[in-house]
Design a protein around this nucleic acid. Structure first.
Lengths: 182, 182
DNA sequence: GTCTATACAAAGATAGAC
DNA sequence: GTCTATCTTTGTATAGAC
């Protein structure tokens, strides 16, 4: 399950074989179908949900303890950039690659990714509201953070540079200042 | 080639079979290896570059003729949102899915996607500079546009909603205003 | 030179031995 | 109940008929 998340994140859903997963996890092949009778799709579903939900806590790590909105956003993007560099631009969003792969091809998995993004947005909205934003503005800013992060991951991983992460950070900060000014 | 681009965009690189491509294109299987001796990787390389470079002209369509920076950006995001809705959230960026899939698994294709993004950034920087921004600011704003679009595609396709596109648009507009004010 | 037919490996899935 | 061995399909790639 841990190994699956890692492989899906780096190689995608269609790019990861079940044999590869059991080999990596040092588990016998048959046991996979014991724990996941629904096969690859059930495994994918559960991996998306668990690894996605795990990321919800990043809001608590980076944003909740921040002294103000702007510094919270800046440290979030800085943290994402560091992770990218430390892992050789491999580890980024746990579900982005899979989300794009399945969006038009597998409805069950598409819904799983949608549920994860929805959870992130709800959590972020709640967190940003504590900084004095209206519910509407807090939601818009959260979506801005998530979309900018996701887009930055695409460009950073392709270009092997953190420049897009910095540009994305400055952009969201500008929006945060604008919303905070009212 | 046209059919390949369509399939790669919707199903990804690993998710698209060569037989699927020749069937869709109503071409005999053998002819694929006649035109692409390098097999799937060469085909992928050429599809990424050609479909990616084709998108460069979107800068000329949406941004160049715009009366000002903000309305140009707004019409770009609005256009992306319309395309998404019209195609049932299938067609978005021609290379995003593939870019994430190959970023850590296929160096040749990763470079192809990087070359495309670099071309977009250079083209956008040039376009934005005409609106009076410094080269540095024009580049930062271009990267903001591309990352926000890419991230919005991820969320919009997963959630089947254009809300992220609207949030991304407002965010980039805020940054554009900030840069223009100096 | 085009294309059909096939080779060979790897995919997902299952049956049956332990 | 766990896992090995196998089945079927699908993938990429190629050889050879026309």
């Amino acid at each position: 399950m841990q190994a699956s998340a890692e492989l899906f994140r780096r190689n995608g859903y269609t790019g990861t074989g079940l044999k590869q997963i059991t080999t990596e996890a040092q588990a016998p092949f048959g046991s996979l179908y014991h724990f996941f009778p629904g096969g690859k799709e059930q495994l994918g579903d559960e991996v998306i949900r668990s690894s996605g939900m795990l990321y919800t806590q990043l809001f608590d790590i980076y944003l909740t303890p921040a002294p103000d909105l702007v510094s919270g956003i800046e440290s979030t993007f800085a943290g994402a950039g560091e992770t990218l560099v430390e892992t050789g631009y491999a580890d980024a969003c746990p579900i982005a690659t899979v989300a794009l792969e399945v969006a038009s091809t597998n409805e069950r998995l598409r819904e799983a990714t949608a549920d994860v993004f929805t959870a992130w947005i709800d959590k972020g909205t709640e967190t940003f509201a504590r900084f004095g934003l209206s519910a509407e503005d807090a939601r818009a800013l959260t979506i801005a953070v998530v979309t900018s992060l996701e887009g930055a991951f695409v460009l950073c991983r392709s270009l092997r540079s953190t420049e897009p992460m910095a540009a994305a950070s400055a952009t969201v900060v500008a929006r945060a200042r604008e919303l905070q000014a009212g």
